[in-house]
Design a protein around this nucleic acid. Structure first.
Lengths: 236, 236
DNA sequence: TTCGATAGTAGAACAGTGTTCGTCAACGAA
DNA sequence: TTCGTTGACGAACACTGTTCTACTATCGAA
């Protein structure tokens, strides 16, 4: 609208479009999106803030620091575990292994979160349900109380370490052929060692470098751990 | 020497005091000093360069990047492992556990290096000696070839995860009383859970939160792994 | 209705990181 | 003597976590 020349045009005050207020849940939601889309290395305070249309300093009214945000990510990833099969005491070893596979699946669904998970103690509802289920299975196998309790620490630690190792490898941006070349170079290296000093390393160079792709090594690890736990069973 | 007044004194050209040339070994030496004195978080390209009296860009003529420097640190830490006791096939389980304790000791002597160790494959001489020794002990226990080979992966992974977890805790700058308070708060939390939904978690809250200080949990873990491996022994 | 307190927002700044760029000096071969 | 190579290293780039400071909106008391 044209103004009379003697009346200066008063610029309209810029009003902030009201935004949905920040809270921890929205911050973790945004961080999860960044994590799933771009991996853990991309989860920075700036990137999360950007995803929320704000500045990084805004987050600090809701989370103490980056480490606390990491904890919340770990809890959220832990919350994705599903243990739908009813507990069957007769199949406690098989079901314990199934839990370990499910833990690994949940970590793989959140690339790199394993890096934040070691040392974290998830205490959310779903994590507690996981703890209770592990205890139930272990007691079904007659594992003594203390052993059962400490197995609840050992089991996720091993799974997290495997997931962590995988993220280190994928962070290298290696193609399958790069991995193949590395593995085959490793084998050649083992074969070329002086057989007098490293007889078994040379002799077993084939199996030392097999099973790196796929889940065979993970399956081996969980079999060893479960067998070790089974050996602790009290005889009735 | 006094100059004739008509000959201006030529100022001496500032010559760089010749420095000992950089090489990978000196760079790793400096990084190890920073690691031992200040922990892994302090090991940055700038700090290492500073310790060498140079700039960070100088390091890149000798190491590709920070990750490669980390690898070299892991190798150097692995080189500190000592296995002086002769192999005794009759005591293969005990000696395997002793190796795991020694691996943990070497990692604790280099605070935080576990953070760089997961996903790293140390291939230095001392690491290979460790591999050979593990294989010797496992074969002494009649473990099949493939199981022995994959155990060589599982064993250090578990030890490294334990060491990593410890560095997360110490990075929090917690005093023993802080840990005590956290543990006791955790126990109270477990005790306060609804016993109908988490009966075993509530019942075992004592042991769930015991053994966090000291090496009991680590000893439990290595016992489980060694027992699991022993269960794979071929019968003769 | 007014005013002060509080909480949250968010740009700017601080102190740090890994890495690359561009320049310079030293050195050895031609 | 000249030239190419190699290593050294300050500056710069793009990023990080976190704090400082100023501002705005909301709320409750007077």
């Amino acid at each position: 609208m044209t103004q009379p020349p003697w009346q200066p045009i008063t610029p309209a005050k810029p009003t902030r479009t009201p935004k949905e207020p920040l809270n921890r849940e929205r911050i973790v939601d945004a961080a999860m999106r960044v994590l799933v889309e771009s991996g853990y290395d991309a989860v920075s305070m700036r990137k999360v803030a950007q995803a929320l249309g704000t500045g990084p300093a805004s987050l600090y009214a809701h989370v103490a620091n980056k480490r606390e945000l990491d904890q919340l990510l770990v809890e959220r990833a832990a919350a994705q575990m599903r243990f739908d099969e009813p507990v069957d005491p007769a199949r406690w070893q098989e079901q314990l292994k199934a839990m370990m596979r499910e833990m690994l699946r949940a970590m793989r669904a959140n690339p790199g979160v394993a890096r934040a998970a070691i040392g974290a103690v998830p205490l959310g509802e779903r994590a507690l349900m996981s703890t209770e289920r592990m205890l139930t299975l272990l007691k079904a196998g007659n594992i003594p109380d203390q052993a059962a309790a400490w197995a609840v620490d050992l089991i996720p630690l091993y799974v997290t370490a495997v997931a962590f190792e995988e993220t280190v490898q994928s962070a290298t941006d290696w193609k399958p052929e790069d991995v193949e070349r590395f593995i085959s170079g490793l084998r050649s290296y083992f074969e070329s060692l002086p057989a007098d000093r490293f007889p078994l390393t040379v002799a077993l160079s084939g199996v030392l470098t097999s099973g790196a792709a796929g889940d065979e090594r993970f399956e081996f690890g969980i079999a060893v751990i479960v067998a070790g736990l089974a050996s602790l069973a009290e005889k009735n």
